[in-house]
Amino acid sequence: MTATQDIAISVRDLKTFFYTNNRCNKALNGVSFDIKKGKTLCIVGESGCGKSVTAASIMQLLPTLSRIEQGEIIYHADRGDIPLHALEKNGRHMRRIRGAEIAMIFQDPMTALNPVYSVGFQIKESLRYHMKMVGRAAHQKAISLLKEMGIALPEKRVNDFPHRYSGGMRQRAMIAMAMACSPKVLIADEPTTALDVTIQAQIFELMDKLKREHGTGIMLITHDMGVVAELADDVAVMYMGNIVEAGTVDEVLRQPTHPYTKALLASVPVLGKGRNQDIKAIRGSTPDPLNRPKGCQFADRCDFAVAQCQTMPEETRITPTHRVMCWRYKELVPNG
């Protein structure tokens, strides 16, 4: 088991619901995981399973129609544990943590930067608010951040507006902005989906470097199993608002136990396995989030479903780190 001092954020039984047209969408229905210091936690799962809602819940940046209904998000700061879920969403306390101690980068760097301010201005904004750093000092810091993120000619680039940056450079600038106050945790929501493949690799390399050099805990949301294999220390597989399987990267990728994890792994080409892979798309489609199955959310699509699956399976630990949410996990554990 991981000692508590290695954990940056722990999420316990988190339930975040959306209320649209008087109907309730249980976007997160009891999610638990830890983001460890200096480690990368990858969250994977199909579109709509609640990855972004998880990130927004931690940042307390949920849309107005949604609410944390139950559960805890504890940020283990040096000055003591802080229950983020209990803080006022836009209160002073949360704002002091957001951006300074927990930072976030988004999917589309083309739209995530404000087009009417220079990149430097937007980096300095964080420095001013969180570190009271202004003027020359802030300018120098912005330049050194851009330099660290691998932007050429940072002295000149710092004054450029975002439209003069390429997509990859903008994401680097976003990361520079996020890293401005040396956060303990960096949350990245599909940070490279909008970029082309070579740039993707560079951005991930950069994030990995930050993790090693700054000890930043990273929560990386991605669709790409190749990235998971490459970067992750821990993996959580989400399906319809639950983490159906979680563990270290070896456990989840080498001994996938949950039928959904297996199906997910079978549906994508795995790096290094060569070309003639047997790729199978997952049968069926995700259920209507407003009209979810009562029991196991995956039951409609699962090849192993039995009558018992009409009730919600419990989270069970296979090893101290490897847990799974499936009634029939015992039969499904790969031997070896």
Binding site: L61, R95, R96, G99, A100, A103, F106, N114, S126, H130
Partner: peptide
């Protein structure tokens, strides 16, 4: 409704600054 507003908020800026400056 644009993305950079979310970015501004995620930086921990106060609401007035998010709304007016951004």
């Amino acid at each position: 409704s644009r993305d950079f507003i979310k970015t501004a908020r995620s930086k921990g800026l106060p609401e007035w600054r998010v709304n007016l400056l951004h």
